[in-house]
Amino acid sequence: MIRKHNFKEIGGSVILYPNNYINDIEGEKLEEMCEAFLKKGVKKIVIDFSSTDLINSIGISILIGIIEKVKERKGAILFSGLKKVNHDIFNIVGLTRHIPVYKTEEEAVSDLKWEDHAAV
């Protein structure tokens, strides 16, 4: 089920806003939302982490799962609004090599070329 206030649809893309702590429970909620949008045919997803202070390793594994699903559907995914510590975490795991990261959601959305280099 898609929850209100946790996402914003813009044209054929969607911006998701996870909570301040991404653990197993929050990660699964995010995964459900992504699946729901992918089923609806939305193939461009931005996850904006500006409200997220902490992401744990279980959250990371769920994010990797989400990226895999988007990849299977030939979609594209972008991250934005990462706090420095979360950027460090994505660096350690190696996600920043695969996913473009933008400072703000506006930058991610307005980047006209994002579809080309964000396709995973």
């Binding site: 390793s57 990797i64 799962g65």
Partner: peptide
């Protein structure tokens, strides 16, 4: 993509 588990 990176492995899913064992990042702790």
């Amino acid at each position: 993509l990176p492995k899913k588990r064992g990042w702790g």
